[in-house]
Simulated assay, not measured.
Amino acid sequence: MKMKYKLLPVICLILLACQSNEKATDNKALSTVKEEVVAETEEVADQDETAEKMVSPENVSLNGTIIVSPQNHASVTIMMGGTLRSISFLPGEYVNKGSVIAKLENPEFINLQQNYLESAAQLEFLETEYNRQKTLSEQEAASKKRFQESKADYLSMKSKKAAAAAQLRILGISPENIEKSGIIQSLLITAPISGYITGTKANLGKYINSGEAICEIVNKSQTMLCLTAYEKDLEYLSAGSPVTFRANSLGNIMFDATVISIGQEIDPVSRSLNVYAKVNNSNTGFRPGMYVTAQIKKK
C-alpha cells in the first residue's frame, strides 16, 4: 500500500505534463491555422481591391483585344508569280527590315532584265545618232525628215527603257545594279518591316501567284487596344481619355493606355462601336488577339 501512495504523485505529474504538451501542440496548430487564414484574407482583399478598381460607377467598362496598327502589320506579297526555291524564316521568328526571307524563280523575271539591258544598249546608240542628226540638221547638211525619225526612235527607246526600269524597281531590283553585275537568276523577297513572322503560307517548291501573301510580319513594339463600347457610353468617351486594362492571360497586372480614336459607325444590331487606345507601357508578353478587360474613367 505504501508503494501505491508513493507512485501516485509521479503518475499525476506525468498526466499534467502530457496535458501541457497536448495544449502546446494545439496552440501551435491553432497559430498555424490563424496564419493561413490571415494570408488567404489578405489575398482575397488584394483581389477585391483590383476588382474595385476595374468596376466602379465612375468608370466605363469595356472588353476588347490587343492589336497592332496597320503600319506595324505587313503582308509579304510578290508582284510577280514564281516558284519558291528557298525560305529563310520560321514561324514566330523575328526578322529585320530588308533581310532576305525567300527566293523566287520565274523565267519572266529573267526576260524582264534582258529587255532592260537591251533597251539600255539600243538607247545609247540611238542617242548618239539623234545628236548627230540634230547637229547635221542645224547645219542644214541633212534632211529634216531624217532628223525627226532619229528623234522619234530615240524617245521611243528611252520610254521603253524607263518602263523596264520601273518594273524592276517594283520588284525591288535596282536597274543600275543589273547594268553593272548582269542578270540575276532569282528574285529576292525581303521583309518590308521588322517584326515576328506569322501566318506562314509557303513551302519549298510551291508556286506563288502574283499578289499572294507568303507570310505576315507583326511588329509588337507599339501595341494598341481595340475595345468595344456601347452607344449609351459615348458621352463618357473622348480622345485622350486614360485607360486602365489588364490582359486576361497575364493575371492581375495593370497596364495603362490612352484613347486615340473612336469609331464613327455604330453596329445596328449590337449598338456598339470600336474604341482604339495606344498602350503606354507595352509588354513583351503582349500578343495580337489577346483578350483584355479595360476601364475608362468617365469624363
Rank of each mutant, 00 (worst) to 15 (best):
N63I: 08
K180M: 06
Q47L: 13
S31C: 01
Q113D: 05
E140I: 02
A74W: 05
Y5W: 04
N96W: 01
Y94F: 15
S238H: 15
S159F: 04
Q114F: 07
A229H: 08
E129L: 06
S31G: 05
G211H: 03
M157Q: 15
K34L: 09
A29M: 04
M254H: 02
K151W: 04
E124N: 13
Q114K: 13
L155F: 10
A166W: 01
I87N: 04
G82V: 03
L16N: 05
V292W: 04
E138G: 13
E22P: 00
F286I: 05
I266L: 08
G182D: 07
N209K: 12
N59W: 02
S181H: 14
V95G: 04
L250W: 02
R246V: 00
M3L: 12
S270H: 05
S86I: 01
S194A: 15
A45I: 08
L225R: 08
N115C: 00
L273E: 06
E22I: 12
V269F: 05
K232T: 14
R85E: 11
M157W: 04
L234C: 00
E235N: 12
L273K: 09
S238D: 11
M1A: 01
S238E: 11
T128E: 15
V100Y: 02
Y276C: 01
K220Q: 10
Y94A: 11
K151L: 11
P70E: 10
S31H: 10
N96K: 14
K34A: 13
G182W: 09
G64L: 04
L237M: 10
Q222D: 15
A239S: 14
V95A: 05
Y130M: 13
E149H: 07
L136S: 06
I173Y: 03
L117F: 05
A213N: 09
G92W: 11
S150W: 02
K28L: 12
